[in-house]
Design a protein around this nucleic acid. Structure first.
Lengths: 203, 203
DNA sequence: GTTTTCATGTAACCCGTTACATGATTCA
DNA sequence: TGAATCATGTAACGGGTTACATGAAAAC
């Protein structure tokens, strides 16, 4: 049925990477723990889970039926379904994480990637941060040329809106610069799989 | 057919309020002049125009056929169709403009409203700005409580993401404060477009 | 024992995009 | 005369939402 390649898939894979969960809890975490995301609805979440299972990224697990087997075990039991990330799902998530192309859902995609930085190696983090920065810089360039072409014809309000928009983007670029800097500096206190390679100071 | 109540309708009405246009030009202005908007495609624009005509917000005008009537005037002519905002369309736009409820497409809706401030009366501007501000403050409050509830369980990256997000919102609130302040101050001095609709009205 | 909350789902819709198709006008 | 660009449109899809329906477990 569904192609199901949206940002929801990405977020679900990322959350399930931390630990298995059933749908209901998954949704709560989508809307709170990862407070950055917009609220997803069950109407999108459950179908998404199904197609992810079909593709082999997720596996359903029987979930904790309340430990007594009173009801006939083959009756129409619809207990909690706990979803677990398969090895293929892990690969898929990794692939999505490190994608830096322009087909990256821009803002939201970065939010998701960043939210999962804790489970990521330093070079992936660097690639994501730098990718984001360069795309923001492209955007800035476009805004500037567009502004230069139309400046005269725009009223003060539109101008102010553009100015504020550009300033916001510039601000995020500075933020990224700080993050990149601190990733570079923090090469010793890292977690796990960063190869000790003291030779990359050149930008 | 289509209900067609999205942000595209809003932007189209606003642009056509300035002057009649045909679809192709409309689209260009959607993507450049109002540089804030995302790029709309013809696939959404033309159907939108049609339904707006059906509803009476827009009227088609014969458009400038190239001034010679060489081709038989009743042949399958598909010349430029120039769209003009009707009186009802103007009302509709006004209504959309001054809507400050929470069903306001949040970010993009504000962008559109702001982009048309030049054609707006000061009290509408004030309402839009203050509405935006209060909704941002609600959002901030939610973020703060959510953060307070989950702070311990979050890793440093997630925390930093939330911090940056909140700072961005706070920054926009300050920006709004300045704008509101300057709207308030500019009631007598300043360029004289303060009173509502000095030139045209009542089509 | 009733109300809340947990938990899973489905059908219909919404607002947009992509890819495609067509024809008129301008310009080298 | 042929290519670019102007100009209008359609069909299929995409990734989500809303509203609805159901039922089990927990809380009161």
């Amino acid at each position: 049925m569904g192609r199901r390649s949206g940002i929801l898939e990405f977020a679900v894979l990322g959350l399930l990477r931390e630990s298995p969960m059933h749908g209901y809890e998954l949704r709560k975490r989508l809307n709170t723990s990862l407070g950055v995301f917009r609220a997803f609805s069950y109407g999108s979440l459950y179908p998404c889970l199904k197609t992810l299972v079909q593709r082999g990224w997720l596996a359903e697990e029987p979930g904790d039926e309340p430990e007594d087997s009173l009801a006939a075990p083959l009756a129409g039991r619809r207990a909690k379904i706990v979803y677990r990330l398969t090895a293929e799902g892990k690969e898929r998530f990794e692939e999505l994480l490190s994608q830096t192309g322009p087909d990256t859902w821009e803002d939201e995609g970065f939010g998701v990637r960043f939210a999962f930085f804790g489970q990521t190696s330093r070079d992936v983090r660097m690639r994501v941060l730098e990718g984001r920065r360069s795309r923001l810089e492209e955007r800035l360039a476009k805004m500037r040329t567009a502004l230069a072409r139309t400046r005269e014809r725009l009223d003060d309000y539109t101008l102010e809106l553009q100015r504020h928009g550009m300033e916001s983007v510039e601000r995020e670029v500075r933020w990224l610069n700080e993050l990149i800097e601190s990733e570079r500096a923090g090469r010793d206190q890292n977690r796990g799989e960063t190869p000790p390679d003291p030779s990359d100071d050149t930008a």
